[in-house]
Amino acid sequence: MAGHDESETSGRKESEEIDVPIFSAENMQSNMKVIYYSRTFMSIIGGVIAGILGFTGLTGFVIYFLVMAITSIGLIAKTGFSIHSYFIGWSQIILDGFLGGLMSFVLFWTFAYDIVHIF
């Protein structure tokens, strides 16, 4: 892959030359933990909001995905838009734990919705 780049003198191809993954596993794990926590937290908050506003059916699930997308954007902004210094790839920050908070979301959505609306 880097074979024909060897005579390159400019630094343009430097990212291609070094394709060794250089990362610390512990820091990586701690970053993943942060993602997991923020997603759980946001899904609980999002559930309460969706319940209080009285969303039902598909709209509520749309809210969930919206909240998750906002979380992803927030996390990306937190990394200062340089994901590769914190995570391996884009998919990790956007997709990891995407459905993990769904159960919490449904529970708190139902809880808030019931307290506010059906009685």
Binding site: K33, Y36, Y37, T40, F41, S43, I44, G100, G101, M103, S104, V106, L107, F108, T110
Partner: peptide, 25 residues
């Protein structure tokens, strides 16, 4: 409509996320 016993089960499974936040991992 959810019965109270089933609400208990929903809580049992759904609160795991809350616990991981308030009690640490």
């Amino acid at each position: 409509y959810v019965s109270s016993r089933s609400w208990y089960f929903l809580n049992l499974f759904g609160l795991r996320g809350l616990f991981s936040i308030i009690l640490g991992e």
